[in-house]
Amino acid sequence: MKKEIRHPDKQSHTGSYSAGVIAGDFLFISGQGPLDLASGQVVRGTIEEETLLTLSHIKKIIEAAGASTDNIVKCTVHLKDINDFDRYDKAYASFFSGILPARTTVQSVLWDGIKVEIDAIVYLK
């Protein structure tokens, strides 16, 4: 059974997808980026700012499913410039408490010049 989760801020999407989908005991969160959720416009900033804004969107989706960021088990991160890795990594790590999720980080061509996109898998139990 699958259940679509709408972003609590009624996020403007840039494509045909759900922000998050529950399948069994897992929530799969689509790639999120540094957007103003009301307008759908990119919020440009430093890699640290874009990383923390993106993670805050993921947190809202998780909370809408009744869980917390402590339930994230895996993130996949796309960076526009892999040379930003150390700065992004510090911001990313500062977002979490306790055990960090498993993670893959790669350099990618990203939509509209954003510096980071993150998706996540969350265990809901």
Score class of each variant (00 low, 15 high):
Q41W: 02
S39M: 08
F96A: 11
L27E: 08
A19M: 11
F95A: 06
S68R: 03
D89W: 14
A64P: 01
K59N: 07
Q32D: 11
G98D: 12
P34L: 01
Q41T: 01
L35Q: 03
G20I: 02
D84F: 00
H57V: 01
A38Y: 09
S68F: 04
I72H: 01
F85T: 00
L37Y: 01
A19I: 02
G20R: 05
L100C: 06
L52P: 05
I47A: 03
S94C: 10
E50F: 08
V77I: 15
S68C: 04
K74G: 01
A91N: 07
L79R: 01
Q32W: 11
A93F: 08
I82M: 14
T69W: 01
V77T: 11
I58T: 02
I61K: 11
L53P: 00
L37I: 00
D70A: 14
L52Q: 10
F26C: 07
L100F: 14
G31V: 14
K90A: 13
N71I: 02
N83E: 12
G31Y: 14
G98F: 08
G20Q: 02
I62F: 06
H78W: 05
S39L: 00
A38D: 08
S30A: 15
E49G: 02
N83V: 05
Q41D: 11
Y92K: 13
K90E: 10
G45S: 08
K60A: 04
L52F: 05
I58N: 05
T54R: 06
